[in-house]
Amino acid sequence: MSDILFKVGYGHFLVLAAVLFLIGMGGVLVRRNALIILMSVELMLNAANMTLLTFARMWGDLSAHTFALIVIAVAAAEAAVGLAIVVAVFRGRRNVDVDKLTALRH
């Protein structure tokens, strides 16, 4: 038990990232508000980034830091476009609940 508590190794960081990923995934699957879903996706990307940096440390390889930086930039661009789409949808129907997007059901 004290090993798990006090001997923090790569496994700890990786499991922390996996839990973060799971929470993000759960948020996307369960919540209905587009903004919360977008935030949950950001959590998933952060979990991926944390995994990447843990492995970078493990392998002593800096190129993953570049990768992580690029992921952060992509997340920013994605958030900008996503929020713009949310605003556009809101303008049309005054709410952003994904369950109420029903114009396309047949």
Partner: peptide
């Protein structure tokens, strides 16, 4: 970038929409 910029963007949009959620969970 994340806490400073992206989250500020989110706060902006939340303020623009200014609407509480009706049914948070499916």
């Amino acid at each position: 970038v994340y806490a400073g910029a992206i989250m500020v963007l989110f706060v902006f949009v939340v303020m623009i929409l200014n609407r509480p959620e009706d049914e948070p969970v499916a």
